[in-house]
Design a protein around this nucleic acid. Structure first.
Length: 886
DNA sequence: AAGTCGACTTGCACTCAATATT
DNA sequence: AATATTGAGTGCAAGTCGACTT
């Protein structure tokens, strides 16, 4: 891998974008060394030590194949003919892209973890049943059912078999490829790593940065930092690829149109359509693209038909149900874009539920070794602290000081307890542990009974009725009192978060709906509003920061949320059409005489290339974290000749560490912004998020900084899936998806803490592998002996082993080898993902239509990728055509 | 133009239950 | 059956961004 070739490209200018046909990307120039993203990654610790990281190495023979295949596939599903046209264009495109790439997918076949899992679980069923009972509204039921079906789809025989089956027919052609090799490939050796490859970078722009891994590897990274890697995303890629393929545009168009026409079914197409149209870039562009592609027509049909059983069903149901109706309603008037206003027409719900009052335990803590009697209020707060004994919050001085300040107030000036250091909360801590243990020991029936009891109490709060449809409420439980657990170095960490009472809560409900009864006798709501321009059902002021609010919203599965989610992705998708111009524009401004303009250009570049967050200003009473606009001089180090090393705390105080190669003008501009300032000064002193967003809005309607994150994440997923998916078994495809998901998570810097048992787990696996290798050796010896007609050696315990035929021994050896390979792959994946959080991007950044379409194309049951909640949340995306491209 | 308010999205971690493993 | 792992689900903190004020 060292030599990654990225194609660098010329600059991208808008031209490219605009013109789809052209694809420059290809030029496979090699990038300057740094490119090797992989190198970087590798460098990271992960690599070290690990044996076989390399799996990823091989790349497809050529992009073409893959692309072609894909194309074919699509058609296959349904109507081949139509597609073909498309295919061709794409193919070309892909090929371009492909060449440079190196994919890392894990070829190893083994991965198969879940492979043959059983289908949908009963769980769903159960739940659905329960739910159905509860709900009166059919809508809900229907939804559930549909989901259920989805899940089941796989299992079902026959038609249900799902998509895959169907597709299967068509596919054959593809299969022809050979991908098998991959599987075999696991071999270890390669050096590189893996993850890093970026195929795309190549695109136009040149530069490509490398991204180092941010995660834990910092140390390592630093070491290697020099080697730059490619950036995560390929800016360029976009252009080129897009152009060439043109696919997206068209596709989208087509799809849209199709949808609309087709069915009425879907949703309220009309509205949406309208929106789309508006949004969607300039027609002119569109038209071009369209021209090139031909997808449109087919799409529709295909979709319909294709829709495999499960998915199809879902859709249908959904349609029938009123689910969509909601959409329509809301949309109706101003459809999409008008977000401004009405969010609902009728709204009914039962308010919120409060935590039970404090129940004193009477356990006395010690002060200077002596028991102290506390009032229930004092004891309650003492208990909050006592229970946190083994968290690292209590190790922080800020936390302890804030806790003490608030608790001391409760104790009163003259209380015996005068300082925290002399307090011993152990008795309370022990009491708590004991309670926990008791709970654990309860029989399953008792637990079940308790659960049902709770459910019964909460049931009425779980549902709302919006425009006649039953919808799940998200957080109907009012937050209990506790000690504020701010992330990072939060100045308010440890403060007492007081109990919320009904008189703190404002309810929002339809005018004609009954006002929810206040659950606490004798008390009443603070206020009741009837505001249909907002979606919240209730809110109260955050006790920690009185100026902020805590809202109660509908659950993610609600159509209100679904619609806004869809709008979000459609907007990101629109960016696809103007990204080229935007890039050209900011590239031009890198050298603008106007410093302010230059700052906007560079900031936009960073947001685009590195997926940085916008970076709003923060108050002094918040943790000191930054985003793009709030970067400090000290957060960026210029490393000659043209690399930048980023190191700062971002959202949730998660560290962002990355070294990337940038265009010379950017490098120079950064140095200029830094000159004459001290480390703690703002890098972009003339910039803030509102200025930046105002500027972005001039480039594209509705464009803001966060759209780039969504766009980059989704484009990356779409590209990787389409480049790396090969024919093969399900588990291999899942590995591809997971890999793509991981790349996105890395781009977005979505991290998680390494589990406490990680290293133990790893060494356990290592042991097992060693054991298997021992077995292998023994088997080989026995094989040799068997061939010569001798009996096997005795085993470790001295017992005589069964006399097996050489064939049987060979089979055993093969099995053992396969097992070892699988375990090694699992280990590599585990190590690789130990600090990477895949969930966040799946939930918030990846357009579910990309996933659904890919599943349809490749016979992957959607339930293998989306769990129950994701299926519910993304129900709006299930009907997408198989050839949908972001 | 800066500051504040308000609404809504994004994000990590924790809990507990479903599963896998021993 | 007991225990370890995984992962769904929940909790709530922390962002983004538009609108409104001053």
């Amino acid at each position: 891998m060292m030599a990654v070739q990225t194609s660098t490209k010329l600059n991208l200018c808008e031209d490219e974008d605009d013109e789809p046909l052209v694809f420059k990307r290809y030029s496979t120039k090699s990038k300057p060394n740094q490119l090797n993203a992989e190198a970087n990654k590798l460098s990271a610790e992960r690599q070290v030590g690990q044996p076989g990281k390399q799996l990823s190495e091989h790349r497809y023979s050529n992009g073409l194949n893959s692309s072609v295949q894909k194309v074919k596939m699509v058609p296959s599903t349904k109507s081949p003919p139509v597609k073909s046209p498309l295919a061709s264009p794409k193919a070309s495109t892909s090929s371009a892209g492909a060449s440079p790439v190196s994919n890392s997918k894990a070829s190893t076949s083994s991965r198969a973890s879940p492979v043959s899992k059983s289908p949908p679980s009963t769980t769903l069923d159960d739940q659905s049943k329960r739910l159905s009972e509860q709900n009166k509204s059919t809508t809900i039921k229907e939804e559930i059912n549909s989901i259920e079906h989805l899940a089941q789809g796989n299992s079902d025989s026959e038609d249900e078999k799902p998509i895959g089956a169907r597709l299967g027919k068509v596919k054959p052609s593809e299969d022809s490829d050979d991908d098998k090799p991959l599987s075999s490939r696991i071999a270890p050796k390669s050096k590189v790593g893996t993850s890093g490859s970026w195929p795309y970078d190549s695109n136009e722009r040149k530069p490509v940065v490398s991204k180092v891994q941010k995660n834990g590897s910092s140390t390592i990274d630093k070491g290697k930092a020099s080697s730059v890697v490619s950036s995560k995303r390929p800016l360029d890629k976009v252009n080129s690829s897009e152009n060439s393929s043109a696919k997206r545009p068209k596709v989208s168009d087509s799809s849209t149109s199709a949808k609309n026409k087709q069915a009425s079914a879907k949703k309220e197409p009309k509205e949406e359509d309208d929106d789309d149209d508006d949004d969607f870039v300039p027609i002119s562009q569109r038209s071009k693209k369209v021209t090139s592609d031909s997808k449109p027509s087919l799409t529709k049909q295909t979709v319909t038909k294709v829709g495999s059983s499960s998915i199809t069903k879902t859709i249908k149901k959904g349609q029938k149900a009123s689910k969509f109706s909601k959409y329509s309603k809301s949309t109706t008037k101003p459809p999409g874009s008008n977000d401004g206003q009405i969010k609902w027409t009728t709204l009914k719900h039962n308010g919120v539920i409060f935590p039970p009052p404090y129940n004193p335990h009477g356990v006395k803590m010690l002060y200077n070794g002596k028991p102290v009697t506390l009032t229930p209020e004092q004891e309650e707060v003492a208990t909050m602290y006592a229970v946190m004994k083994d968290t690292d919050y209590v190790q922080k001085e800020t936390f302890r000081n804030n806790f003490w300040a608030d608790w001391h107030k409760l104790l009163g000036k003259n209380h015996v307890i005068q300082k925290l250091d002399a307090c011993d909360f152990t008795p309370i801590y022990d009491w708590y542990q004991n309670e926990k243990e008791k709970k654990k020991q309860m029989s399953t029936e008792e637990k079940k009974a308790l659960k049902e009891e709770k459910l019964k109490q909460e049931e009425k709060y779980m549902w709302a009725e919006v425009d006649g449809d039953k919808e799940k409420v998200g957080n109907f439980r009012v937050e209990p009192p506790g000690l504020f657990r701010g992330r990072g170095e939060h100045p308010k960490s440890g403060k007492l978060k007081r109990r919320i009472r009904p008189s703190d809560v404002t309810i929002n409900i339809g005018k004609d709906a009954p006002i929810p009864e206040c659950p606490i006798p004798g008390e009443s709501w603070k206020e009741v509003r009837h505001d249909n321009t907002v979606t919240w059902l209730a809110f109260w002021n955050d006790p920690i920061n009185q100026k902020e609010f805590k809202y109660v919203f509908l659950a993610p599965s609600s159509s209100l949320k679904g619609k806004s989610d869809e709008l979000k992705y459609d907007k990101a998708r629109r960016l696809t059409d103007c990204i080229g111009k935007i890039r050209a524009s900011y590239t031009k401004d890198f050298t603008s005489k106007d410093v302010s303009k230059r700052q906007i250009a560079v900031a936009t570049y960073l947001i685009d290339k590195l997926a940085l967050r916008a970076g709003n200003e923060k108050d002094d009473d918040e943790a000191d974290t930054v985003g793009c606009c709030t970067l400090k001089v000290e957060n960026v180090k210029a490393i000659p000749p043209n690399s930048l090393e980023f190191n700062f705390l971002g959202k949730d105080s998660i560290r962002y560490e990355n070294t990337v190669e940038v265009e010379i003008p950017v490098y120079k501009a950064i140095m200029q912004f830094q000159s004459g300032k001290s480390g703690s000064d703002d890098l972009f002193d003339l910039l803030d998020t509102s200025r930046l967003n105002a500027h972005l809005k001039e480039k594209m309607d509705g464009l803001t900084a966060k759209v780039f994150r969504t766009y980059n994440a989704s484009v990356t997923l779409d590209n990787i899936l389409n480049k790396e998916t090969k024919d093969g078994d399900l588990s291999e495809k899942l590995v591809v998806y997971q890999h793509a998901n991981k790349e996105v998570a890395i781009i977005c810097n979505h991290q998680r803490t390494v589990s406490k048992s990680h290293s133990a787990q790893m060494s356990k696996l290592t042991e097992k592998i060693a054991e298997l290798q021992g077995n292998l050796k023994e088997l080989k010896v026995d094989l040799d002996r068997a061939k010569k007609g001798k009996p096997p050696l005795k085993d470790a315990d001295g017992k005589q082993k069964k006399n097996l035929t050489p064939e049987a021994l060979e089979r055993k050896i093969a099995q053992t080898n396969a097992k070892i390979e699988k375990m090694e792959l699992d280990m590599r994946i585990k190590e690789d993902l130990k600090t990477v959080a895949l969930g966040t991007s799946k939930i918030n950044y990846l357009d579910p239509r990309i996933t659904v379409a890919w599943c349809k194309r490749h016979e992957v049951p959607i339930e293998k990728i989306f769990n129950k909640s994701l299926l519910a949340k993304f129900s709006w995306a299930m009907r997408v055509e198989p050839d949908f491209r972001f």
